[in-house]
């Protein structure tokens, strides 16, 4: 009897809860199925592939840590890793500073604020192929207007005009380009952050006679800490993923990148789709993942610290 009764209540409770669950799952299902099939499974597969040797056709063989060991003696991998890190170190702070400054300026009551906001967002929405084509014209080593101005007005001798897309300058060009292209995007995020700061804080500071710099130093900057964290992490992740900017600004005669411009994702692509070393290419991808993972962990730690 008792068993029966409990069974009945249990059944009732179950059916109600199950129904609620099913409704909830029905909401999730369309996205989750696609997400699981096209993202989760490949990720699991990617981890496995790093420990295997496969060319996409012949039988798979087990490689253990061989792929990772090989990385240490690979000149091109090391160059790609170095360039990617340099590119990040250059791009992240510059973009952050530029977008913060822009956001602060555009948060003031100025005439045509909407127009300026829209303009600074243009580079972000513009197609990469189109804007890199323009940049390559503007920075053309011998005909471009930038070098033309350097030559005509700054009297830089012809032989010393900067070669923007090769050698030591290519990473600088990539950094400048990225700052230009993405600062509008991060500016919007900063704008959203700025709008969350209560105006009372500023009014109180004004009464105390605080100047512009003091207000920034003691109100804006500390209040924006969490936004800055978010911006820095997103920037870092996106910088590690850089590929198309490099290939479009610095790709050579056969589309190749020399050791001064090669980046991790280009190397992954080359190993996988040109040489069909899928295992090795996955191992490089794992390095990329670890880098991004470490940065994300630092962010979580930092956010926790600020939340306390």
């Amino acid at each position: 009897m008792a068993d029966q009764a409990s069974a009945v209540t249990k059944k009732k409770g179950l059916s109600r809860q199950t129904k609620r669950d099913l409704v909830a799952y029905s909401f999730i299902a369309p996205n989750f199925i696609g997400f699981a099939v096209f993202t989760l499974i490949p990720i699991v597969f990617a981890f496995a592939l790093a420990f295997l040797n496969w060319d996409g056709s012949n039988p798979i063989t087990f490689a253990g840590f061989d792929n990772f060991k090989q990385l240490f003696s690979d000149t091109f991998f090391k160059a790609a890793l170095k360039n990617t890190i340099i590119y990040c170190v250059g791009t992240v702070p510059l973009t952050m500073i530029a977008s913060l400054a822009l956001a602060i300026v555009l948060n003031q009551k100025v005439i045509g604020r909407g127009v300026f906001r829209t303009l600074s967002f243009f580079p972000y929405v513009a197609s990469l192929v189109a804007v890199t084509a323009v940049w390559k014209m503007l920075f053309h080593p011998s005909k471009g207007p930038i070098n033309n101005i350097l030559y005509t007005y700054f009297k830089v001798p012809l032989e010393e005009l900067p070669q923007w897309f090769s050698g030591g300058l290519v990473l600088l060009s990539m950094v400048l380009f990225s700052v230009w292209k993405y600062m509008g995007y991060y500016m919007v995020i900063y704008l959203a952050g700025l709008q969350g700061i209560s105006s009372e804080l500023y009014e109180a500071a004004s009464l105390d006679g605080a100047g512009t710099w003091a207000k920034f130093r003691y109100i804006t900057w500390p209040q924006l800490q969490s936004t800055t964290f978010f911006v820095v992490v997103m920037l870092t992740i996106n910088c590690f993923k850089v590929y198309d900017i490099a290939i479009m600004l610095a790709g050579g005669g056969s589309g190749e990148l020399t050791t001064s411009a090669t980046v991790l994702v280009y190397y992954i692509y080359q190993k996988a789709f040109m040489e069909w070393k899928l295992g090795y290419s996955s191992a490089v991808a794992m390095v990329l993942f670890v880098l991004v993972f470490v940065v994300t962990m630092i962010q979580f730690r930092g956010q926790k610290k600020y939340a306390e």
């Binding site: 091109f76 070669q163 090769s166 050698g167 030591g168 050579g252 005669g253 056969s254 190749e256 990148l257 020399t258 050791t259 001064s260 090669t262 080359q270 040109m274 040489e275």
Partner: peptide, 19 residues
């Protein structure tokens, strides 16, 4: 030859661009 080719391509670019 696929790998050798990409090495030669890369350093050709390095030499020609003065890197």
């Amino acid at each position: 030859c696929a790998e050798i080719n990409s090495v030669l391509d890369t350093y050709h670019g390095s030499i020609m661009s003065g890197e």
